[in-house]
Structures are given as C-alpha cells and as structure tokens.
C-alpha cells in the first residue's frame, strides 16, 4: 500500500516544475511558421519563456469560450479580427492600450476602436494553379461570380467557417458585396465546386499548390508564401472588390500570467518583432506598426479594390454565430452532384 502511495507521489512530482516560472501561454492563430519563430525571439529579448498552441482563429474562439471560467492562455496572438471582436464583446478578452499605440496605422485603429489591438492586415483573394485549370480548359477566375461556374467543379478549395476565421471573412465579404440572399445562393453554387474544406485558412493554398485543386480562396499574403516555396500558383484579387482582415492581438481576461502577458504584447508590437513575420515566419501581411517595413513580396493593398468592411456588424457574436450556423446547416450538408 505504501508503495502505491509512494508511486502516486513520485508520479505527481514528475509533473511539477513550471508552476512558478515566468511564462507566457500563447494562443497563436497565424501561420505555423510564424508562431514557431515568436517564442525563441521573445525569450531572447525578454528572458520570459513562451509556450504556444496553434489553433485556427474560430477554433481559438471556441477554446477561449470553453475555458472562460478558468483560462490557461495569457495572450491570443493573430488570427482574423472578427473572432477577436466577438471575444471582446463576450468579455473573454480585455482591451489594453500599448505604449506604441500612436505608432499603429490609424486606419486600422479607427476601424476596430478600442476593442482589440490591430496586429496586421491583409486581403482575401484567389490562389490559382493555372496548370490545373488549363488541363480542363477552365479560365483563370477574375471575379467572385466566376466561381459559381460548374466548370470549376472539384477544382475549388476553401476553409471551413466553423474552424477558420479566414472562411468567415470570405462569407462576410460576399454578404457585403452581394447581399445575404444572393451571397448564400453563390455559396451554395460554390459548394458544388468545392473539393475540400480545410480546417485552417492558411492551408487551402497548399491544395492549389500541390495541384489537388485549381483555385484556393484565402488571404493573398498566404498565397505569397506558396509562391515563394516554389509552388506553381499566382494571386488574383477579385474584380468586384474584396474583404480584408485586421488581424488582432488580445489580452485574455483572467490570464494566469498577466504581467508577462503585457510584456509580450508590448514586445509583439515593436517593429523588430513584427519584422520576424516576413523575415523568418513566411507571413507577408502588412504589419500594424507604421515603422515596420512592408515586405516587398506583400500584395500591394493600395492597388486592390477593397470593400468598406463593416467590422462592427460582422464582429458581433449574434451575427457571426447566425451566419456560421446558416452556412453549416444550409450549405455544407448539401451533397454535390
């Protein structure tokens, strides 16, 4: 018996250690390559340990909601803005005004107000594998309306809005351009063409790059990554205009390491930290700090027809939950002919 008790304790002791250390628990939603570079750089700059879990932004929201009573994460880093806004509205995150607030691009700040801190911005587009399209004689799509054409059957990929904030941005963009009714008709037609819905917004471009599909709908800066990796893809900005995201960084309410969390947020908004994204993180968004150099590979947002994205409406929990549920129940289950 004593042995059993002794064993239980020795096992328990094996698991101790990090309880008192300085540490930041990061919920990281951008590209995995970027997430992986943050920890070492932050530890080097501040000496504080960083542990991260990478989840797509809608999944992150789900995780934060699940843990709201008892959070394990300190900071939510990156991911599309709408779920950040939802989290703020629901009281899961709290606003913190960083010392570099005045250096952040004013357009981004004005769009989201004092809810979450803008981290980067980027626009939705098509990542196209021309070779695959040429095989079936399909033209390169230039507009949203092109995608409903049955010629793209089995050639489209997009992320699933249940898990991916990118996908929610896509749907919200369509609704803002075409109105909800027509947008859902288009989504139903696009659904007939989609070969695979992915869990993560960044991953669909890979399907296009590898040639599993011809067109991936996703953020254009993610497409840049696949171009640079050597995949035969190009980036297209849709002709009707396109939506964009204001990726965010949020402090979790009730964070287990609040001081370290603030230290991390301050660090993450410096030009040095933001430059890591393009230099080592294979991420080519336009960063929020005006002093961060814009990577030469980034899609030029001034030449793209951006819509006047309504962040307040589409970042409200009710709208978001309703739209995702509507897609999940009315579009997703329909079999493809």
């Amino acid at each position: 018996m004593k042995r059993l008790i002794g064993f239980i304790f020795s096992a328990a002791l094996l698991f101790t250690g990090s309880a008192f250390a300085q540490q930041v628990n990061l919920l990281c939603s951008p590209d995995l390559a970027w997430c992986e570079q943050i920890g070492p750089a932050f530890e080097e700059a501040t000496g504080i340990d960083l542990e991260f879990v990478r989840l797509s932004s809608s999944e992150s929201l789900a995780r934060l909601r699940a843990e709201a009573a008892n959070p394990t994460f300190d900071v939510w880093f990156g991911g599309t803005g709408d779920p950040h806004l939802v989290a703020f509205t629901e009281g899961i995150t709290e606003f913190y005004k960083p010392t570099v607030w005045d250096d952040l691009l004013s357009g981004l700040k004005n769009a989201v107000g004092e809810t979450y801190i803008p981290l980067y911005t980027g626009a939705i587009g098509f990542v196209v594998n021309e070779g695959i399209l040429a095989e079936v004689g399909a033209p390169v799509p230039q507009c949203w309306e092109d995608l409903v054409d049955p010629v793209y059957k089995g050639l489209l990929a997009m992320p699933n809005p249940n898990t991916s904030g990118t996908s929610y941005t896509i749907i919200a963009t369509l609704i803002q351009i075409f109105g909800e009714e027509q947008a859902f008709e288009m989504l139903a037609a696009i659904h007939q063409n989609v070969a695979q819905y992915t869990r993560s917004g960044g991953a669909v471009g890979l399907l296009a790059g590898r040639g599993d599909v011809g067109v991936a709908i996703q953020f254009m800066h993610d497409g840049v990554k696949y171009v640079r990796q050597g995949f035969p893809v190009i980036n297209i900005a849709p002709c009707e205009g396109t939506g964009f995201e204001i990726g965010g960084i949020s402090l979790i309410k009730g964070a287990p390491h609040p001081d370290d969390a603030l230290a991390f947020i301050e660090w993450a908004l410096t030009p040095e930290a933001q430059a890591i994204a393009a230099q080592r993180g294979e991420s080519f968004q336009v960063q929020s700090n005006a002093n961060t150099p814009v990577p030469p590979e980034s899609p030029d947002l001034s030449s793209i027809n951006l819509i006047d994205y309504d962040f307040a409406t589409f970042g409200s929990p009710e709208v978001r939950d309703r739209i995702v549920a509507k897609w999940t129940n009315e579009v997703f289950p329909v079999p493809r002919r």
Partner: peptide
C-alpha cells in the same frame, strides 16, 4: 487535452499535416 507546454507528438503531427508542413 493538450495545452501550452503539454503538446503531444501526434497532435503536433496532425497540425503539421493540416498546415501543409
């Protein structure tokens, strides 16, 4: 059940597959 600092090999592997690594 995984959490920051308590990541498991298979979960990480699945993430890599999904992320295209």
């Amino acid at each position: 059940l995984v959490s920051p600092g308590n990541m498991l090999a298979t979960v990480l592997l699945l993430g890599w597959v999904e992320q295209g690594q």
